[in-house]
Computed example of a mutant assay.
Amino acid sequence: MNERNDERHSDDQHKPAARWASLWLITVSPTIWAVHFLLCYVTAAIWCARVAGRNGMLGDARLLIAAYTVVALAGIVLTAWRGYRQHSYGEGSAPHNEDSSEDRYRFLGYATLLLSGLSAVATIFVALSAVFIRSCA
């Protein structure tokens, strides 16, 4: 019976903790993109309504949007890195379709990595609107 406990204890050391397999990490990158979109939209709306007027130029609002974009992309890259580390955990290989805690952990990392890539593209597309649209009209 002692050997059995020792085997189970040594197996537990190689498994990811249950708290690591949370679904929260998968939502971070899309949330960063959504906040970035909202900040860009509100900044442009306030700038055009209060500062530049209806036919004015975006001017300094474009600099704020660029700053928002840099911060958002940094957060998305950090989340993608965490997802990549989670995806490449241990000795498993894709597809992560086994009924084990390690494969679930790796699958969540893979999904986080893919959603981070999608969120980065969406964030860049939002920022490109400030590059191509120079006026409030």
Rank of each mutant, 00 (worst) to 15 (best):
H14Q: 13
L23N: 13
F37H: 13
A34M: 04
C136Y: 02
S29H: 00
W20L: 13
V70Q: 11
A18K: 13
M57K: 14
A44E: 04
D6K: 08
P30R: 02
H14I: 08
G109A: 01
I65D: 01
R8Y: 15
N97P: 14
I65H: 01
G53W: 02
A67R: 04
Y105H: 03
A52V: 06
V28S: 03
A94Q: 08
S129H: 14
Y41R: 15
A120N: 03
V121A: 10
T79M: 02
G83M: 00
V126A: 07
S101R: 06
S129I: 10
S100N: 06
A122G: 12
D103G: 04
Y89A: 04
R104A: 15
V70G: 11
A130D: 11
S22A: 08
A137L: 09
S88D: 14
K15S: 11
G92P: 07
S10Q: 15
G90N: 02
A18M: 11
Y110N: 10
A122E: 06
S88W: 12
I124H: 03
T43P: 02
Q86V: 01
M57F: 13
S10Y: 14
D60S: 14
G53P: 02
E98S: 13
L73S: 01
C48N: 04
I46R: 12
S100R: 05
V131A: 13
L58P: 00
Y41M: 12
A66L: 05
N55L: 09
A49C: 07
N55S: 14
H96D: 14
A122W: 04
R19I: 12
R82F: 10
S88P: 15
C48E: 01
T43E: 05
G59S: 06
S135H: 11
F125T: 15
C136F: 03
L115M: 05
S10R: 15
A137V: 07
D11Y: 07
D6G: 12
S129K: 15
D6Q: 13
W47Y: 10
